[in-house]
Every structure is written in structure tokens, then in C-alpha cells.
Design a protein around this nucleic acid. Structure first.
Length: 602
DNA sequence: GGTGCGTTCCTTTTT
DNA sequence: GGAACGCACC
């Protein structure tokens, strides 16, 4: 155990003074972490500090709550990397919904019998929820919009006001002979809140188990999530570190609570503190960000450049064109030059405000002519995250190598789990499992060398692991046609990669995106960083929301520009081809944005 | 089946 | 702001 005065950041990481203060704070804190200020690192170092100094000693834990599975596992990984004693950390990193579900599943009996759901409820099965709404309203005349709205807005917390809602509530909790109980994510969190509200001992148990809580991307917290946090931890000794940036609050439309920072400071008597070293962007890009502060109503403007940049580094440009065809050509040319300078395709991003599929085709074609791959990233990302796909990709990669890597270890322990032999110490059983797995990989390897089809290969891998294994380990594959759909869309996309690639290893690398330029919406790029950012269509059509919600739209622009490390390119085209009108629509460059960038454009 | 008018959506995650 | 859809009317 280290004395708290002698603790130094893990891996000799440099922490700015205020980051260091946040790491060691014993009070509730709101850490405003602007783009690139290293919030994940700060939280990981804080976890290290609390563990290493014994401030958070056994059996106490740290709870980190994120919105997305991605962020939750990234933070968990970073903490693991920063902790010296591997394995000896008590860091629970999970999403809001995972936490709520855990509360509900573990303490379901703490609910009054009238609102206690069946144990085997489905999680937001939308088709079946729609059937429930129809059943409850005894009408098949509702349109799908009304049906969706009804179950989405149903609340277990507010008293039911009419018979249809009463009936729907009961259907969700208990189902019928034909329909299984079925709760929305919203509903699960409401029931979790009810459990904590009505059972002080459960609330107390959480507070004791987790004396330290981290809240990630705090600016996006919804009313319900905040209520959940308050129910669990308000007026308790638990020390909460909330990290976020109001300038990057771009989820208002999805219900992010606008006053969250103020509310947290008041409710939890939290101090506010700003991280001010931007480790990501070159000075010129940071200067552009700073020039937006006034319009973002940000008073605090102390931002320091990272020492790795010279003062003049960072390039901002505007590509203007007469039509979108010319624009695509110019963008492709510019990207090709960047690639020739040695920038890798996956260090470049093409951003659009909304509807990537409307803007992508011309640019994809123009890049293709130059031999550069680009793709709408979300089509692939949802698939890459599927556990089934991960296992298939691992099977292919491990068949092509013979080294006993960390990946192989993970693959092996998953296999042992699938055989129901996860916690054995008998060396022989482990040896047998290794042998079986190696034989399987050998046979797969033979298939790969014999130029098998993707379909046959996938079938073979699934047969080995068995459908039953996938369905028991990952319950999302149990219902509907999730498993079938995942397999089909994987085969389709993977076939494209295999046809154009030279080897299976290359095809897998391409599939996970190592060789192509991602195209995505600004919202999807939140939290990511790229060496070069191309923001397509700085016009009043793409940014139509500027007229009805200028603040949120300014923040979206801010998120977009703050993804860039070194190169930032905007495009504007006077006309764009639309499917319906063979004539061309003219568009106007948003003048406020143009005024903002023109001082920085070379 | 064309047209004209009104309405809705666009930007998202979660076991 | 405009694409896409449903609906009434011819």
C-alpha cells in the first residue's frame, strides 16, 4: 500500500494540476473535460490512486457508469492497464441499463407484488410490445407510430390514469398465455428506482459496496437516469466524480437533461473544476474551437496546447464546389494527397450532419477511382460488436496463426465456458480442451487454404460452437430471428471483403475497418479522434436544424471540429443532386459558421 | 394512378 | 429545409 502523499500517476503519466486534484478529491466533483483533455485517463488514474493508496480497500469497489457498452469497456480496460497488480482491482464499469437490470434482477422480490414482473421477462422486444399495446387497447386500428409511442411512454412510476395503461402495465409485467412478460429499458430503470426507493437496506448496501462512483459523459444524462443516480446516492457518504462537457451536449433531442450540471452541483453540493490541457488537437484547431466558445456560452476559456505541437501547426481548409459531383472529386483528391503523406485511411474520417447514406455514394465512388476504400461505418460497427461475429473473426484469425497470444487465451476460456468447464484446475481437462480447440482451428485453417466460401466457413464455425451455446451465452439470440439475421448480414458483408482482399487475414482486417475511411454522422463520432476530419456540406440544408435549434446545432459543429487532431476540412457545394428533383437544389453556406472559420482557412 | 395537401421525421443507446 | 409517406379527390 502506498502513502497517499507518495502516490505518483501510473506509468509515469503526466497529469495537469487540476487533473491531479480531481484524481485525489474526496468530495463530489463535476469535472468539465473539454475535447481531448483526457477524461478517461483521469478516471483511470483516480481508480489507480484509490486502490493503490488503500483508500478504496477490500471489500469496497468503484462503480463507473457509462451510456454505451463501448465506453464502459474502454474505461474498464484503461483501469486494468493502469493498475500494477493485475487482477486485484474492484472496478465495476457498466452502462446505466446494465446497472438498472442488475438491480431489478437481483432484488425483484423487493417490489410490491402489484408491480413485480415475471423473472423471465423479455427486454424490449419491440414487435411483441406492439402486440401488447394492441391487446391492451383491444384495437387493431392504431398505426405503428401510436403503438410505439404508447409503450415507449408508459410509466410504472406515475400512477396509471386509464384502463388501457393499467392493462398494458400488467401485460408488460406478466404477459399472457401467448405473450411473455416484456419490459422496455425505460421500464426496467423505473422498476429499479422503485426497488431502491422502497428498500432502504438495498440502497444502503449499494452505498457501502461502492464508496466511489464515476459518471461518464455526464452532459448526456436523461431525467430518468439522473433520478436513478439520486435515488441510489443522494445524501450519502458516496463520493461521486461526474465528468462531461456541456459544449458537447448533442443529445438534447433524445432527452438529455439541459440543466444537469447545475442540478448536480446543487443536489450533491459538488464543486466544478475544468481540465484545460488539450492533448489531442494542434494549436490552430484549438484556436478555432476557442473562437466558438462565445456562441456556446462558455465563459471558461483557459485551454493549453499539448507540448507535442508547434504553435502554427494544424490546417483548416474549405473546399468550395459548384455541385456535389465536383465536391466528391476534390475531396477524393485531397484525401489521396493525405494518404500519400503517410496518413492511414482509418486515421481519416468523413463526417456528415445527418443521413450518411445521402452524402456517401458520390464520395465513395470518387475515392474508389483512386483505389481508396470508404464505407458507412455504422453498417459495419453494429455487426462487429455482435458476440457471434467476434467469435467468427477470432476463429479465422487464430486459424491463420500459431502463436499463443492473449486472444488465444480469451478464446480458450470462452470455449471452456461453453463446455461447462470454466473453473476447473485439473490440468488434464484444460489440456483436452486446448487439444480439441487446436484441432478445430487446424480444420478451419485447411478450409481457409482451400478457398472455401464464407458461407461454408461460417456454418462450420457455428456448428463447432453450436447454436445452443450462442443462445444460452447471449440471450439476445434467443428470440426472433436475431441469430439468422446476424449470420446473413455478416456473410454478405464479409463476402465483399473476401472477394477484394488477397488473404483471409486481410479480409478480416478490412472487415474491422483497418483499410478504409469511415463515413459517419457527427453524433456517431462523439468521443473519437482522427488525424484528418472532412466535414461534408456546411450548408443550410444539411444543417437545417440551425434554424429551429441554433444552440444544439452549434454544439454539433463543435463536436465535429474537435475530433480533428491536425487537419480539418469543410466542404460547401452550391448545388446538390436530389433524387426527386432532376433539377438541382441550390444551397447557402451558413454565414455564422463561415464567419467563424474564414479567419483560420488558409 | 396522378396531384396536391398535410404530417412526420431527420441526429441514439441500452440485456 | 425537404424527403417520404398517407390520404382525399379526380
Amino acid at each position: 500500500m502506498i502513502n497517499r502523499n507518495e502516490w505518483v500517476p501510473a506509468d509515469n503519466f503526466f497529469l495537469e494540476q487540476k487533473a491531479s486534484y480531481s484524481v485525489k478529491s474526496m468530495e463530489n466533483l463535476l469535472v468539465i473535460a473539454g475535447p481531448g483533455t483526457g477524461k478517461t485517463e483521469m478516471l483511470a488514474q483516480r481508480a489507480n490512486y484509490l486502490f493503490e493508496t488503500g483508500i478504496c480497500k477490500e471489500p469496497y469497489n468503484i462503480l463507473a457508469i457509462s451510456f454505451k457498452k463501448d465506453s464502459a469497456s474502454n474505461l474498464g480496460e484503461r483501469v486494468k492497464k493502469r493498475s500494477s497488480k493485475s487482477g486485484d482491482y474492484r472496478f465495476d464499469s457498466m452502462t446505466y441499463d446494465a446497472l438498472a437490470k442488475r438491480v431489478l434482477d437481483q432484488f425483484r422480490n423487493g417490489l410490491n407484488i402489484t408491480i413485480r414482473p415475471d423473472g423471465d421477462y423479455l427486454v424490449q422486444n419491440e414487435t411483441k410490445l406492439s402486440e401488447m399495446v394492441k391487446e391492451a387497447s383491444q384495437s387493431y386500428l392504431l398505426n405503428s407510430y401510436c403503438v410505439n409511442k404508447t409503450w415507449r411512454e408508459f410509466s410504472f412510476l406515475n400512477p396509471t390514469i386509464n384502463n388501457v395503461q393499467k392493462k398494458l402495465g400488467n401485460l408488460m409485467l406478466h404477459g399472457t398465455d401467448k405473450l411473455q412478460a416484456n419490459l422496455s429499458y425505460h421500464g426496467i430503470m423505473q422498476l429499479a428506482i422503485k426497488i431502491i426507493e422502497t428498500n432502504p437496506s438495498i440502497r444502503y448496501a449499494f452505498q457501502v459496496a461502492y464508496p466511489f462512483v464515476f459518471l461518464d459523459e455526464f452532459q448526456d444524462t436523461t431525467d430518468l437516469q439522473y433520478k436513478f443516480i439520486k435515488t441510489l446516492f443522494l445524501s450519502s457518504p458516496v463520493v461521486i466524480t461526474a465528468v462531461g462537457d456541456d459544449k458537447q451536449r448533442i443529445m438534447d433531442f433524445a432527452g438529455a437533461r439541459k440543466t444537469i450540471f447545475l442540478d448536480f452541483k446543487n443536489d450533491f453540493s459538488a464543486d466544478e473544476l475544468h481540465l484545460s490541457v488539450n492533448h489531442r488537437s494542434a494549436p490552430q484547431i484549438i484556436n478555432l474551437q476557442l473562437s466558438m466558445y462565445k456562441s456556446l456560452q462558455e465563459d471558461y476559456n483557459e485551454v493549453f496546447y499539448s507540448g507535442k505541437w508547434n504553435k502554427n501547426e494544424g490546417e483548416i481548409s474549405l473546399i468550395q464546389s459548384l455541385d456535389d459531383y465536383e465536391e466528391a472529386k476534390k475531396v477524393a483528391q485531397d484525401i489521396m494527397e493525405k494518404i500519400h503523406q503517410g496518413i492511414k485511411p482509418n486515421e481519416i474520417v468523413i463526417l456528415v450532419k445527418q443521413r450518411a447514406e445521402d452524402y456517401a455514394p458520390l464520395i465513395i465512388d470518387a475515392l474508389k477511382e483512386k483505389g481508396i476504400k470508404a464505407r458507412i461505418e455504422s453498417d459495419y460497427q453494429s455487426l462487429i460488436k455482435e458476440p457471434l461475429v467476434k467469435i467468427i473473426l477470432h476463429s479465422i484469425m487464430l486459424s491463420s496463426t500459431t502463436s499463443y497470444t492473449e486472444d488465444w487465451q480469451k478464446y480458450l476460456s470462452l470455449y471452456m465456458e461453453s463446455q461447462g468447464i470454466s473453473d476447473v484446475e485439473d490440468e488434464r481437462i484444460i489440456y483436452d480442451a486446448e487439444k480439441a480447440l487446436n484441432e478445430f482451428l487446424k480444420s478451419t485453417s485447411l478450409m481457409l487454404n482451400n478457398k472455401t466460401t464464407v458461407k461454408k466457413l461460417v456454418q462450420c464455425i457455428i456448428d463447432f460452437w453450436t447454436v445452443d451455446f450462442f443462445q444460452t451465452t447471449f440471450p439476445e439470440y434467443l428470440h426472433g430471428s436475431n441469430l439468422e439475421e446476424t449470420i446473413t448480414s455478416f456473410i454478405n458483408l464479409m463476402e465483399l471483403e473476401y472477394q477484394s482482399g488477397e488473404s483471409w487475414t486481410e479480409a478480416v482486417k478490412s472487415f474491422v475497418g483497418d483499410n478504409s475511411i469511415p463515413i459517419m454522422t457527427i453524433h456517431k463520432s462523439k468521443g473519437l479522434e482522427f488525424k484528418a476530419v472532412y466535414l461534408i456540406a456546411l450548408d443550410d440544408n444539411a444543417f437545417w436544424s440551425f434554424k429551429c435549434n441554433p444552440d444544439a446545432t452549434r454544439r454539433a459543429l463543435f463536436v465535429a471540429i474537435s475530433r480533428a487532431k491536425q487537419y480539418l476540412t469543410f466542404t460547401f457545394s452550391e448545388s446538390r443532386f436530389t433524387t426527386k428533383h432532376p433539377g438541382r437544389q441550390t444551397h447557402v453556406l451558413i454565414s455564422e459558421f463561415y464567419e467563424l472559420i474564414k479567419r483560420f482557412v488558409n
